[in-house]
Amino acid sequence: MTDTQQPTADAQEAAKSRVGRRGFFGFFTFLVGAVVGLVPLTVAGIALFDPLRRKAAQKTYTRIVALDAVPDDGLPHRFDVVRERVDAWNRYPAEPVGAVYLVRKPGQKKPTAFTATCPHAGCFIGYTPGDDKFQCPCHTSAYHFDGTRIGGKVSVAPRGMDTLDVDVRPASTADAGGPQEVWVRFERFETGRHEKIALS
């Protein structure tokens, strides 16, 4: 009896030891595997999600045109927004980065500025001289000259055209009372939303 029990107890002890050893090995393998796997995954994740920390272009005022060049006829006049920009590893000298429509009602000094980006899906809103509206070429969005949607709530556009902050400043070389120019704070907004939210 004792002879037969003794090997069994030894075997159990050995098995326990093996299990403990195996468990330790298993745990340690998992730990090593986690470290080996997590390091590249974490590094890759940081790089992958890097765009989330990047900010939109600076929302500074940009000179658009001389005030005299915007007739106070209540009609839209398109102007390029020309300024420097940075794209990852490049800094570009001043070049067109977008466009605005300036509308100046009769007798009005400060024009209203609309960005040419459609608030629906981001297409470039068009205006042909002689037309009585702005028309987006992509879907069916169309806008009055005051930027409101033609068709109101039945328009596919979620909101009217986005206005931009305008500043009329004396020309840098002008004396007091001299020529003035139009500056616009050019920025982009989230499309497809009812609220006008600046891209951050």
């Binding site: 398109r78 977008g98 297409c123 070429p137 992509c138």
Partner: peptide, 10 residues
Amino acid sequence: ADPASNYAAA
């Protein structure tokens, strides 16, 4: 591609 152009055939 020109982000500043009025491309109406998108």
